[in-house]
């Protein structure tokens, strides 16, 4: 299969900050492939808890804007993949969200906020939350 050049036309390597390169490396995704159609944001069922819509997360990464690193959105994302199956450019946004979490988690910080373990909650919820939201 011929190699598909996805977002390279938009990329200015000399202006690409290190954190954007890290996000692309950790996620294996090309953030410049996104052409801002907004389908991911339209279908994401978690946007009421987000400060940046999924497409906005991609846009700030393209711009190298560090505000994306402070965003709450990756911590609200539940890796449900509604965006992934719909993106016309084949961007796996859930992987980008995971990479943004990992930049924080790999410094030893946690993103899990809980006061108590809800009674009767299945183990898969606890293991899932700790695997996605703690170092």
């Amino acid at each position: 299969m011929a190699e598909v050049i996805k977002g390279d036309a938009l990329r200015i390597p000399s202006r690409e900050p290190e954190f954007v390169r890290r996000v692309e490396e950790l996620s294996g995704e090309d953030v410049f492939a996104c052409y801002q159609c907004g389908k991911c944001s339209a279908g994401c069922p978690f946007t009421t808890g987000m400060d940046l819509l999924p497409a906005e997360v991609l846009r700030l990464l393209q711009l190298g804007d560090e505000r994306v690193l402070e965003s709450r959105s990756p911590w609200v994302c539940a890796s449900c993949l509604a965006c992934e199956v719909r993106c016309p450019k084949g961007v796996d946004i859930a992987k980008v969200m995971e990479a943004l979490r990992l930049l924080v988690l790999r410094k030893g910080e946690t993103g899990l906020t809980w006061r108590e373990i809800p009674p009767g909650v299945p183990q898969i919820a606890l293991v899932g939350a700790t695997r996605k939201l703690t170092p």
């Binding site: 069922p45 978690f46 009421t48 808890g49 911590w75 609200v76 539940a78 890796s79 449900c80 509604a82 993103g111 899990l112 906020t113 809980w114 373990i117 809800p118 909650v121 898969i124 919820a125 606890l126 899932g128 939350a129 996605k132 939201l133």
Partner: peptide, 14 residues
Amino acid sequence: ECCGAYQTVSNPWI
């Protein structure tokens, strides 16, 4: 559509 999954532990309101 997702039920909220493991966010039920971290962000139950979601």
